[in-house]
């Protein structure tokens, strides 16, 4: 089984900046050991949102396999490989249904995390990106949340197309809805549902995506 999840947090967005001082929020979303890590952090907002993004990325990955799994962040515990908060680091998120490996990077503007279920070699098959649709990467797309969400979907489809060698427009990413929840996005190539694991995220100014390379046999069949 291969599954991927990703999450981006705009550290400057309304509701994100200074949130580490919101004790009730912190107590609802972090475990005791995570609260301890936050208390020691020199970058508390980045630390809070790094843990949050890791939990969200892990949830997105594990909910592919266990669709009814709890989404409540307090049920997920992050274990990072580094005691501080270097700009790039790795770790694990312990979920109610097993652990998910994560990799994070952050700067003064945003935190981005990708979570992966599968063998460690899968990281070689991962493509992920974070971008600001307003900054010229996707100049035709305006900045409303809906359009930023569309930007993530469009950029992911374009990247998958590039990876598989398919012309632009043959790859689509679609979402369905199951009992008041959005189902995870699915990749369709030439209208055919594929098992390509893909994850989309957007927050504030940023859109992000992550996907694992389509399985070779499937990709070859699609291209023939």
């Amino acid at each position: 089984m291969r599954a991927v999840g990703n999450d981006v947090v705009d550290l400057r967005a309304d509701g994100a900046w200074g949130k580490s001082r919101d004790k009730r929020f912190v107590c609802r979303v972090l475990t005791a050991s995570e609260q301890n890590r936050l208390a020691k952090s020199q970058n508390p907002d980045a630390c809070l949102w790094a843990m949050w993004a890791a939990k969200e990325a892990a949830y997105k990955a594990v909910s592919r396999i266990f669709p009814d799994i709890s989404a409540w962040p307090g049920r997920y515990e992050t274990v990072f490989d580094h005691p501080g908060l270097p700009r790039q680091f790795a770790g694990t998120v312990n979920t109610p249904e097993g652990s998910v490996c994560v990799r994070l990077h952050w700067d003064e503007n945003r935190v981005h995390c990708v979570g992966l279920i599968g063998s460690s070699e899968l990281w070689q098959d991962l493509t992920a990106d974070v971008f600001e649709p307003e900054d010229g990467a996707h100049p035709a797309i305006e900045s409303s949340a809906k359009k930023i969400s569309a930007a993530a979907r469009t950029a992911a489809a374009a990247a998958i197309g590039l990876h598989t060698g398919l012309p632009h427009g043959l790859v689509k990413i679609e979402r369905t809805r199951v009992s008041q929840r959005s189902a995870p996005p699915v990749v369709k190539i030439q209208g055919i549902h594929t098992e390509t694991p893909v994850s989309l995220s957007h927050h504030g100014r940023f859109a992000a995506f992550a996907f694992l390379a389509p399985l070779q046999a499937q990709s070859a069949a699609m291209c023939s």
Binding site: G15, R24, F25, E56, H203
Partner: peptide, 10 residues
């Protein structure tokens, strides 16, 4: 967004 849902619960 899911973080704001936590604020709403509070």
């Amino acid at each position: 967004n899911s973080a704001r849902l936590v604020d709403i619960i509070i």
